[in-house]
Structures are given as C-alpha cells and as structure tokens.
Design a protein around this nucleic acid. Sequence first.
RNA 1: GCGAAAGUGGCGGAAUUGGCAGACGCGCCAGACUUAGGAUCUGGUACCGAAAGGUGUGGGGGUUCGAGUCCCCCCUUUCGCACCA
Length: 869
Amino acid sequence: MCNPLFACNLRGSKAMDEKYFPEKIEEHWQKRWADEHAFEAQEDDPRPKFYTLEMLPYPSGFLHMGHVRNYSIGDALAWYKRLRGFNVLHPIGWDSFGQPAEQAAIKRGIQPRDWTEKNIAHMKGQMQRLGISYDWSREIAAHRPEYYKWDQWFFLKMLEMDLAYKRTSAVNWCPNEETVLSNEQSSGGICWRCGAAVTKKEIEQWYLRTTKYAEELVADIKEIEAGWPEKVLKRQRDWVGRREGAYIDFKVKGTSEKIRVFTTRIDTIFGATAIVVAAEHPVLANLLEDSILKDQIMAFADQVKAARAIKTEDLAEEEEKLGINTGQVAINPFNSELLPIWVANYVLMDYGAGAVMSVPAHDERDYEFAQKYTLAIRQVIAPVVHGQQSEPVDQAPGGDQSMEMKNAFTAYGVLVNSGEWSGLISQDAMREMANRAAEKGFGGPAVTYRLRDWGISRQRFWGAPIPVVYCPACGMVPVPEKDLPVLLPDNAQFTGTGESPLKGVPEFLNTTCPNCGKPATRETDTMDTFVDSSWYFFRYTDPRNDSMPFDRGVAAKWTPVDQYIGGDSHAVMHLIYTRFWNKVMRDLGLVDFNEPVKRLLTQGMVTNRVEGTNEYKAMSKSLGNGVDPDEMIEAFGADAARLFVLFAAPVENELRWSESGIEGAVRFLRRVWTMVYRWRPGYAGLRPAERAGGVRTDFSEAARVLRRKTHQTIARVTDDFEKLDLNTNVAALMELLNAIGDFNAEAANASASDAFAVREAIEALVVMLAPFSPHAAEEMWEGLGHQTSLLKSATWPIADPELAKKDELEIPVQVNGKLRSRVVVAPDISETDLRTIALADAKVQSFIDGHKIVKVIVVPQRLVNVVVK
RNA sequence: GCGAAAGUGGCGGAAUUGGCAGACGCGCCAGACUUAGGAUCUGGUACCGAAAGGUGUGGGGGUUCGAGUCCCCCCUUUCGCACCA
C-alpha cells in the first residue's frame, strides 16, 4: 500500500512501463526531439557557446562501428555541455563528392548523384535511429550546388590572391584505358580494372600554394598544442618538414653556370668530395652541351626518371644508389677545391635545391655512394671527447680516409681539416660559415620545407568543377563570381576509360568566353574532395547563406571549433588542409583567428575478432568481421550500443567489439530502469517542501553514506567529462547504481529522509546517464514525475563538497613498506595523533615488536609507514 | 633502419600522478527463484598457501621510508616515417 508521505496521486506523470523496452522509447523520443526542435542551435541564445564537431562522413551507404563510436563520443559531449548550460552547436553533413560514386556509376550505370542521395538518405536514417543529437536544420552536402558554389568561390579568391596556379606534373596513367588513376586505383603498380602496368604521365594541373603558409603551419602549432594530441602535431611538423640550413652556390669550372645546393651541415663543407644533382636538374642540359658524354649521361638521367615513374607509393623500399660522373667539376667556394659533378638517383629534384654537396664522411647516403663509386672520403668533424678539450688533428688536405672510416660519422662535433674553421664546434661553425657565405655572396642561411603545394585537380566527374574557361583569344579566364556555380551536368557517360566524363558532355564543355564572348571551353578538372572538408564546419554556422560562404559575424559567434573528434587517419591531410584554409580565410577577412580547432580528439579504431583466428582487426567487409549498427540497435537498443562503445575502452584506444560487453550495457540500463520504477511513486508524491531536502538533518548513517556517494560521483563524472575520460565515467555511474542498490530501504515505507537520499541519487544518476543513453534517460526522467524533457527541466547536478567528504578515513599502516594494518580515524586528525594511533595498533605492534623504530612516515589523510630495524 | 607510444588478473581496463594494485564491466564458480533457462537476483573470483603469511604491474638493475608510476639497460607489441641533403 501507499506510504502516506508519497500519496499515490502521480500529479500527472505519465505511467512508466515496468520493463525497459528500448525500441519503444527510442522511437518515441526521437520523434519528440524532432517535434520539439530540441537540438537546434540559435545564435541569439545568450548562453555561452560550445561547438562540438565530428568529422564529416563520406556517404558510402552504411554506417559502420567507427562512425558509431565517433558520434557517440561527440554526442556525449554535446549532451553534457547542454546540461551544463551551454548553447551547443552539434551539426552534421556529408562529404559527398568523390570516387566511389563514380565507380558505382561505372560498374552499375547508376548516376553518381542518385547513388549519393540514396546513400545519404539511408545513413541519415541510421544516425537518427542512433538518436545522435544533431541539429539537422544545418545539414549540408558537398555535392549540392548550394555548397560547391562556395568551393568555386574560394577557388576564384585564391586565384586572385595568387594562391591557385597551374603547372605540369605527373599522374598515374593507365596506357591501356587511357585514363588517369588515383593512387588506390593504381595500387601495386597495376591498373585496378585492366591490370595493365601503370605509368606516369605529365599533365597540367591546378595547385594551391600551401607552401606559402609553411612557416605558419609550423609556428602556429604553439596555439593549439595544449588541445591537440602530440602524435598528431608531430606528424604535422614532419609533414611540413621545416629544416634550417644554408644555400651554397658552387661555380662550375670553365662555364658561367652555378649549382646551388641546400645543406643542413655546412660545417662539413671541407669534407665535400663531389656535387650530386638530381636527374631532373635543369642545369644538366647546359652543363653537357659540348660534352662527349652527353648522350650517355642523358640516357642515365632518363633511366632514373623512368624508374621513379614506375615506383608507386606502396612499394617504397630503398633503391640501390646509382650515379654517373658528368666529367664537369665545380669549385668549392670555401677552399677553391675542385669537385666532380655527378648525377644520381638518390638526389630528389623537389626537395631543397635538387642538388647536394656529397660529404661521405658525415652523411650515410653519401658514404654509401662514395663507397660504391670509390669517391674520396675525408673526415672533417671529430667527436668532442667529453670533459676535455679535443685536439684538432689536422691531416693533409685531400687525404682520403676511405679505408679508416667504416661508417659515416653523422653527429655534431668539432671541425678538423677545415682551414681557418678547424677547432670550432659544429653548431658555431654552421652559423658562422653560413654568414660568411652570405657576406661573400655565394649563399647564406636558408630554411626549406618538405611540404609541397596541394594538387587539387582531379580528372573526374564527381567533384566541384574548377571555375575557369579557356578562350582561344583570351587564354585562361576565371568564371565571374556572378556566374557561379558552374553546375555539374545531370548526365554523363561513365565508362572508366578515356578522358574525364565531363569532356564528353558538350553542354558543359562548350561555353562562351566571359571576357570576349566568343566560343570557349570549360576546365573539366574537378576539385579534390579535401577542398570540401577544409571549410565545411564554417558553413554549418550559416548553412543557407546565398551571398557568401558564411556570414563573418555569424561564424564568429560559433567558431573556432571547441572540440573536434575523428580518426587519426586524418592527422595530416585533412587537418593540415583545414588549417591552411583557415589561414587563407583569415587573409580574406572572413575569420580573425589563426587556428580553426581548439581541441582535437583522435579516437581509436573499432576492431573485431577475425573469425577462425584470435586476432582483432579493424572491421571490414573483406575480413567479414564487420558489425552492422542497425542489427545492434535492433537487438540491444541504441542506448546500450552507445553506452557500451563508450564504456569498453578509453576513447583513444582500440575498441574491441564484444557481444557480451553490450549485453552488460543492456543489463545496466535495465537495472537503472528497475530502480527508477521501484522508487517512482515516491518521487511523484513528494511535496515541494520535502524536495528542498538539503537542509534536512535527520539522515541516517546509511543515507549519509549514499549521499556521499552521490556527490562524489557527481564530482568525478563532471571532472572526467572535462578530460573526456568517458569509460571511467560510465564506471562511476555503475558504482552509484550499486550504492543505491546497497541502500536498504523500500519505497513503500521509507522515511522521508531516506526517500530524499534515494531520490537525490536516482535523479543525479538519470541526468548523468543522458549523455550516454539519452532515450532511456529521458523516459526515466519523465517517469520520475517531470513534466518536460531533460533539456527543458534538468540541469547537470552540482556536487556539494561538504556532503562528498568522508567523515572517517581508513588509513593503511605499513611496516617497512609492507601493508600490515588499517586504522580508522577522523579526517582532520593531527599528524601526531595519527602516528600514535597507528603505532598503538595491535597488528602493527606485532610487527614492530622486538625491533627498533628508525623512523615513522606520516602522510596526512593517506598512510603511515613505520620503518624498523 | 629511424622515430614515437605502450606492455597491469582468463579478457577490456581502473589506480586522486610517488602512498591500500586490480575500481567498473565481461567471463568464470557457487547459491536462490524456477517445469526449464543462454532470464533475473545474491555471493565469490590476481597468484601460491589449510592458515599464518608470502608473491605479484614484460625482464634485469637503480633512486626512495615507499615505485605500476621516476632513472638506466634489455625484450615484445602497435603505430608513424622511409633516400627529405
């Protein structure tokens, strides 16, 4: 029967099901959230903003578990921040241009647009069944003209800023089908369709000058390093590859030619025994003009180039070093020594200056090369002997040490055999010698970067058309802004062979020159899809703007992104390009900060056991170890799937899929549900006066213990959310549930203070569960008698430190570092009292009996260690 | 080869950053309820030992009253880079 305190009038609360039926409540709340526009962000909301973002998915057609993990993390954060009173922007969209749509067109004759839209519709349904709290009113898709118009707009701006340009470069080419291949399509050096050997072909392509921002891309890392994983930043630093060194110009004897080399070790220049240039080096043609060796050397250079063309990215093992002496000699400007000029395959044209000074004594590659071609090896750096001044041993200049040196000595040291520079240490010599080169005009300090310009041309259909026109009279003419977007045609032929499908659509190809009005043809290259993903999260802030990519002021309210979440496979490309794009937008006056993303979280992979083995590998179709999110939702519910994914491992770790693990998550939700159900009449019946129970003083010991656990849990969960330690967070909620279960009271006859303690615990638990399992949390919140949904009537609970405080402490007592006993004391006990109590403990006594106490270490609130002899 | 990160029960993982190792969950064991249970509930579960006690965070050494945590050497795994002058 009803306890009179908790009158059975439920004050209008909806009857709660006795059992947890995920499919029923999930559908109900998904609809209700949509009807209430619960997750739509308004920029005039006065609360502080929080922008949480998950990486834009490619609409392959099916969500995989990696997505589920990604979105579950982001959604937990979004819910948490909302409940903490933030105005949260949590949008989603589609990276919907790209190769697979075109391959589907080739294989199955379906238009890329239809294939893509169908996939989006399906995946959107899956996301909604997961109940991710996206603001769907801001949804965007890269392949729609309203979006790619602005890709084109940015391209025109970059053209004006001289950040976009065209030059020839090599692409993977299938000679059989006469078509350009992507790296994936040419993997292993053979064409994915016909198996022909892939070659390289030089074609004209569009580039963006990322190198212009190389320095900033490194330097600005300091602005984000607090919020980005170090492993990502390291890869970005390596990608940009900033190196300090010097340029030196070597005159070619008997000509007016100079060969410029870059070196990071100018201190070794007296050890240079050759100049080595890349096969593509332009100086070669002039150098060999009158040489009898010309044909032979050019043949060698061609052979190197050809070998490089065949070499594909995934066969990047080191090749044998090959070279040929040109017969010409260069003059070392530091000592006027004559050095033979070689051509070799290990020198790359597109790094540094395309030529190096070969210092075999102090560079491993040069050493290997010199050994092979019996070039002189001369040591000019000696190790610094620790603790004593090392003696510069000068040997006769030109002395060859090929026999003595078994390895290159690549460390810094002290200069020997280096004329006036001998005796200096490397670091000083590098600086002073570079300055000398600058004074004398044959070089100077220099910085180079590994970063290259970003090639954005794709000879494909399914991308944003590059908005330029080629006119026989006016040349290359940008499409005027007012004529954007340059629309993709509705139909094209997809054969997978021959030229880009756009070339076969006359209505697209043929146009008039914006300049002179005469017939002209359009550029048929489309843009790399990394263009779309470089700025999409700005578009979310102002997704329907039709006069600008986004409004400066509106974007400024939301950006930069507070938390970005995605896989670390994007550590370099996407995340470098988007940083680059941000800097361009800054220079265009669209944003006023240097870095678009404050905090980055890289989630780990989701793996599953490969059937018949004990190995866990990333889920994939080919391995047959994939898990379908829809099946999971059907079997266990979205809430349990999400809860498990967040609980099973720290977000950065690999996540091993486990069917029994997700069953555990369902069990937990059921237990919470049952607990809420059991105490439901109590809550509903409590009068407002009793709800203000914080002032009550009549709590039993057990109730105080429960309240302590409640407030400790609130503090812990809140803290862990800031660190995104979601797995320990779920564990804390489980502990709280266990504590409620341990509390020995029945709803039907509990005292008011007991009921208060339980209600406090359950309400906190339900609210804190919302980020993990929002549907169940909403339903239980309602079941607790609340009239409106969580975001309208709940706030994140606040921990009361007084209530969280323990009223006694169990202090471990060690003897010689070994745990021997525990003593129970008041938390504010003095050090001396704690020491006395510990020493008086009977068990401790038995261990120190007969020994001499050497020392007693007392760590307040923590432990006592008695050291005896 | 170079660089980075990581090695804790049968498994995923905790450990307030130098202070009770193994939270929480999975699995397993026992019991209860049940015609039955792959449901639910209760209890147990690092290892050795009957117990007292001992051992234990990849291996070895060190610092410290005290080490999963700090230092040195080694082993293993994962990831990244791969002629970048």
